[in-house]
Write a protein that binds this DNA or RNA. Structure first.
Lengths: 254, 254
DNA sequence: AGGTGGATCTCGCAC
DNA sequence: GTGCGAGGTCCACCT
């Protein structure tokens, strides 16, 4: 199902919406293209002056206001919002969307509409994605030499006072090694984390000689400096993505 | 300008796109609604099986694939991507989008199209927003007494070894004060951050007496306990939103 | 239900 | 250009 109306008056648009959207808003995506103004109050407050945008109302109550550029909607309402339409005294179409917890409301005034479209979309597919931190951890377990020659991993997710150590083991000289794995860019907080884990282990094993290695696809210079300050180490690791076998056929003709 | 075509064949759609979009993709937003499959390779990899979605191509090259629910696009291409259309041997419309730095490509195969729409949007307005962390920081600079009577702020964004201190100053007894501001709920990591900053300052000024105050709209009990453990303090601060005067008129009839 | 952390985060700003 | 932090982050997972 797909219906639409072009250059409607406010009342034409309202009729259209009541006919094709209001009875089953949870089964119909509504699209409005036109010149509008957006007013939002909730976790923050914002005002967006007149301009032509695309407004999308999804089946779960999500409202998105898209400008002609940028990936992010300039305004939006979260999943579960309730949206109503009215006509104001200036005969303009008004969209009001309300959300509870957190309380948020958005008002859109349209002073011109290019089109309104209603459609029902059937989509049960879920996104399959690959390339997570656990993969890197597994990779290191399978082949510890990608971190360091002679490294032996003895424990995964070792509990210590300050938290959970990703990988724990010993280097070629039997010195304990704490490894913290980050999926993307290593941050300063990762250093603090690693530092605490190393201190915890030092207390546990009653040895001053415990190494800490931060493994991430990228370690910024500032973080490297901080690691050096604390006598810690790092190893930049490639994030290699493994896909299920049955993807190969589909992907190869990409 | 707004053009569209309903239930087009792949070649109809391609003709339409070449006529209304290809000549000036940077001035035309293109919308495709139909049954498609999405294949993405770049920073990650993903495959999205057949389903009905709305595909939006913005004037800056952004591509968004929206399912019937959720705020986030299930797939997308960043600003600056180049998109091309073709027809494959099975007479299906193919969308290919490429991006460089980071290298990312997305392929969409349509096996059915409900509609294709092309429109040019004129929008020069920018969002005016209020209620950010910087506002709280400014608020404290303007009136430090909202944190504590007699407090004097001397520096904003003071660099120390572990990072960037939001606010630095001295209390009525000339004791150095480190202030970390959070715009919403204070977390454990905020405590660690503050703790590091206070330690850094202690070393810098060679004094053991340095105070640390965590300022946030809400400080959970667990975080308070942790702060007490470390001899740190907190101050719950109201996030007050200040709007430009000329907003008042617009907002009051919201 | 609330907290915690990751993200193809996105986006802006300072260096 | 790159790094860094904020976001009405969003969203899934966990307690």
């Amino acid at each position: 199902m797909l219906k639409n109306i072009f250059d409607p008056t406010a009342s034409d648009a309202l009729n259209f919406i009541e006919k094709f959207h209001k009875s089953k808003p949870d089964k119909t995506m509504l699209l409005l293209v036109g010149d509008c103004m957006v007013d939002y109050r909730g976790r923050a407050r914002s005002l967006l002056d007149w301009g032509e945008r695309m407004v999308m109302i999804k089946e779960d109550g999500t409202v998105l206001v898209h400008q002609p550029v940028m990936r992010e909607p300039v305004n939006w309402q979260p999943t579960g919002s309730k949206t109503e339409f009215k006509i104001n005294k200036d005969k303009q179409l008004i969209l009001r969307s309300r959300h509870t917890k957190p309380p948020e409301k958005m008002k859109i005034v349209f002073r011109d509409l290019k089109t309104v479209m209603a459609t029902s979309l059937r989509d049960s597919a879920e996104l399959v994605i690959a390339g997570m931190e656990t993969d890197v951890v597994n990779q290191i377990i399978i082949d510890p030499s990608i971190v360091e020659e002679g490294l032996r991993i003895s424990k995964r997710e070792k509990h210590v006072k300050s938290g959970l150590i990703d990988l724990y083991g010993f280097d070629k000289d039997h010195v304990p090694v704490v490894i913290e794995v980050k999926r993307s860019v290593a941050s300063i907080s990762a250093v603090q984390q690693l530092r605490m884990y190393v201190n915890d282990v030092k207390k546990d094993v009653k040895k001053a000689d415990v190494r800490g290695i931060l493994c991430a696809p990228r370690v910024p210079d500032m973080v490297k400096k901080l690691l050096l300050d604390y006598g810690l180490e790092w190893q930049e690791v490639e994030r290699q993505v493994v896909l299920p076998d049955d993807w190969q056929k589909t992907l190869k003709d990409f």
